[in-house]
Amino acid sequence: MTGTLPETRTVVVERDFAHPPEKLWRALSEPHLIAEWLMGNDFRPEIGHRFNLQGDWGGAIDCEVIAVEPGRTLSYSWNHVHDDPDYDLTSVVAFTLTPTPAGTRLRMEQSGFRPGQKRAYGGARAGWPRFLDRLDQLLVRTG
């Protein structure tokens, strides 16, 4: 874990859902529905609206709506300020809905920025117990 990490990273997750775009849009834009699959929130589909996503770990993600095109695209910033660089994150999430014969293809693209860092030996070692806790949770979830 030495050296400088790449500064920007993108995650793309795409899936075909057997439901029409209008329905997907409701799930992506109505707060009580967003809470059902993502996180508790005070979202409003208005450009510039600032809201939080409440994580189940007790923390919150700071968001601001960047783009709203009902039934087609939704994008908001997804920022998490944290002392630990592993958690500190400035990113943008963009959802794109494309109608398909069977329903809708949903594409989620998250482009993130994480400051490059050099990890000292001591720092890496100190970070491991916490990482193992996370790994435990991951094993429970994927087990």
Binding site: R9, V11, F17, W37, L89, L106, Q110, L138
Partner: peptide
């Protein structure tokens, strides 16, 4: 980070499918 976020979103999409 990308591995973690990918797992996160795949899990969320599973829940989204259930919700739909």
């Amino acid at each position: 980070w990308t591995v973690r976020m990918k797992r996160f979103w795949q899990g969320r999409f599973d829940d989204l499918d259930d919700l739909l």
